[in-house]
């Protein structure tokens, strides 16, 4: 059975002024109602790295928030590990598009958030330290987020998420706002982390190359209201390289075309 099963998922944001009790026609998005996701069906396997692509504003974040349990679907069901998602859980940790680190806590305290129930102080300390080291932030344990660079903040948040040992890791545009080199390094880090831990990971990105380099599977969404344009399993060997792999390169041009850019520059 698939780890994540999404059936007939539809999301409509109801405007504040008009709040009809019943919605007879999900297609309808007149008035202040916004149809964001339209009848999405997806299934992801255990341990997969899934990259979700789509134009800005198409509902990628909304999809992730529903999977994480922060929002309820209007229609349809989302199951994680065979169980229907009913609310946020520490089994599905979300890494936020803009930093979700608590600015009043040090790196050490932030990473320790998911480990706060461990009574054995030694054990807790060593596990926090282990995760801090995993993202190469040793020496920065007692820094506050504002004292770190953007890339370091992302890594700290990643460490905080992984420290909980969740079944599912959800990342919303984890590389946005990073400079080119930091972006590349961070991408490599996420791929290595995934190779090592083999956790089901969902990554939203608007960068086609990110998706093709990282993903075990890619999902391309259309503009709003979002429907699925393409689901493709990528079984290209790693490390991936567009020049050496004509298949990958062809897929890349195809997706560029699909998203409305005829020539891949």
């Amino acid at each position: 059975m698939s780890h994540i099963q999404i059936d007939n998922l539809t999301k409509i944001y109801v405007g504040r002024r008009t709040q009809p009790r019943t919605m007879h026609d999900p297609e309808e998005h007149s008035g202040d109602n916004v149809l964001v996701l339209n009848n999405i069906n997806l299934a992801f396997e255990e341990g997969e790295m899934v990259c979700i692509l789509g134009p800005s504003g198409c509902g990628k974040s909304t999809l992730l928030r529903i999977i994480a349990g922060f929002e309820a679907p209007t229609y349809g069901t989302v199951k994680v590990g065979g169980r229907k998602v009913r609310g946020p859980s520490d089994q599905s940790i979300f890494v936020f598009q803009h930093s979700g680190l608590y600015p009043w806590m040090t790196v050490y305290e932030n990473v320790g958030l998911g480990l706060r129930h461990i009574d054995d102080e030694e054990d807790k300390h060593s596990r926090i330290q282990e995760h801090v080291e995993m993202v190469e932030l040793e020496g920065f344990e007692h820094y506050y987020p504002h004292q770190l660079s953007g890339g370091m903040q992302r890594r700290a948040e990643l460490a905080r998420a992984i420290a909980v040992n969740p079944d599912l890791l959800i990342m919303d545009e984890p590389f946005s706002g990073l400079d080119f080199l930091t972006h590349m390094k961070m991408r490599e880090e996420v791929v290595n982390m995934h190779e090592f831990l083999r956790k089901t990971t969902l990554v939203v990105t608007h960068d086609i190359d990110d998706a093709l380099i990282m993903g075990d599977r890619i999902v391309v969404l259309s503009g709003r209201p979002s429907a699925i344009k393409l689901v493709h399993v990528l079984d290209f060997p790693r490390p991936r390289n567009f020049e050496k792999d004509p298949g990958l390169s062809r897929l890349r041009s195809e997706i560029f075309l699909m998203l409305g850019v005829p020539y891949a520059v």
Binding site: D90, S92, F96, L113
Partner: peptide, 25 residues
């Protein structure tokens, strides 16, 4: 509001939401 989602994600109790999130924030 993201900080409240983090709190929900990490299963903060009401008391923890107050002492670890609202008061320091």
């Amino acid at each position: 509001p993201t900080f409240f989602q983090v709190a929900a994600n990490f299963r903060f109790s009401r008391r923890e939401t107050l002492t670890r999130l609202i008061l320091p924030a």
